[in-house]
Design a binder for these strands. Structure first.
Lengths: 226, 226
DNA sequence: CCCACAATTAACCTGTTGGATAATTATGAG
DNA sequence: CTCATAATTATCCAACAGGTTAATTGTGGG
């Protein structure tokens, strides 16, 4: 909470007097654009609406981000950046293989459940055939440290004989993401088809356990039945 | 191939003279709308473009389908109907549990790979929170016979002791669909992040086998290691 | 043969919305 | 204090696109 100007606004006074803070303004636009894009898609999101919610003029959006598409790319960069950060906090190395795999599964599931806007954004970007993620230097460069973590868990498990030698880190990651993302991304059509509530705490808990189980049974060695 | 009018068009003559066939015109609009919606989404798809490709006037679309949203619903109904039909041709009952589960996995994978437009359409409908699928009588009524088939396989496997008793048909179906759909729906962001080609014949074959393996290892009983 | 009706077309209308032009205002360096 | 510059606003615009009005034309039944 840094001082914004010479005039100190009275406590509780609505901050309607916009201070000229480049970074803060950009960050606010980005956050609101994130929500709007996740809600309505690239085409559905409306620049006027973003400006209104951010309490600024539409022109400012283009002043800082040039075009709607570039704004969308910036939003993607921010969203993926946050996930990457969260992944770094996982310390799978400290755990035994089975615990590590289960923790990884549960972490991924929880992350997607807690960030449905992110999941929707990814779905939207895929509808657009990944054209923006490809165009972004930052995103094509951005490594995903989680792959390294998974590889280390697998190596350890394979040498201990508790994990099958043929398991591949990328395939595992794909399997896990597929399972985890589906629960958020395909919620609506699935619920409509089967009248199956996927949002209740019980349904979520069940699915969370199920995914961890699927994953562990997939990787575990046949020789070491538990 | 039924006769369309008194005048028989010469072989190879472009059928630019539109015959006044209500059902045929509707079907053509529907097919092209399906492709356009899958390609560009509900908002991105363009009525003029659909009309142009169908060789008719835009007005006809609204004459037959009232609005873009209703056209989209009709497209969804057609697409889900086709999947339902395909599912009926699966005869899992004739197979032993393991073979049935593997066949189910491979069938589902192949269907999604062969019908990426369908997968995209489902993703698009989910972005719109399933609002159209909910509005459609036909779709909310439409049962999915595959669930019954899965249940019968599970029952058989459980009584034989080859499938774990706690496996649930809906959870299994969700797991399989998640894995299968992901390979099509999230192709682009996944490929961009990991530079992992998911479309080569080898990658597809590998993934296909992997999914069948995941599924079987998930459902099989601990007592009967193969 | 003809006419009622349905299929189809041509032309139009209007709200929306990315984006642009140009003026304004706050701020910090000197 | 002041002035150059950057942040911000007010206003406008042109294209696009969903939907409509009204006219036209083909066809099958009488």
């Amino acid at each position: 909470m840094k001082a914004v100007s010479a005039r100190t606004p009275a406590q509780g006074e609505p901050a309607k007097v916009r201070r000229r803070d480049r970074e803060k303004t950009k960050a606010e636009i980005l956050q609101i654009a994130f929500e709007e894009f996740a809600e309505s898609g690239l085409l559905g999101a409306n620049a006027d609406a973003i400006a209104a919610r951010a309490g600024i003029t539409k022109r400012l959006i283009f002043y800082y981000f040039n075009s709607k598409e570039e704004l969308f790319i910036a939003v993607l960069e921010m969203a993926y950046g946050k996930m990457r950060l969260a992944e770094e906090d996982l310390h799978l190395e400290t755990l035994e293989p089975e615990a590590a795999i289960r923790r990884l599964a549960e972490f991924t599931f929880d992350f997607h459940q807690a960030n449905p806007e992110f999941v929707r954004l990814v779905a939207i970007e895929n509808i657009h055939r990944g054209r923006h993620i490809q165009r972004s230097e930052k995103l094509t460069q951005m490594t995903r440290p989680i792959i390294g973590q998974i590889e280390r868990v697998l190596t350890k498990g394979k040498s201990l004989g508790t994990i099958r030698p043929e398991i591949d880190a990328h395939e595992l990651h794909m399997t896990l993401n597929a399972l985890s993302i589906f629960s958020v991304a395909n919620r609506h059509t699935f619920e409509a088809q089967f009248r199956w509530d996927m949002t209740s705490p019980e349904a979520k808990a069940r699915r969370r356990a199920e995914i961890a189980e699927v994953l562990w049974r997939y990787v575990r060695s046949d020789k070491a039945p538990r």
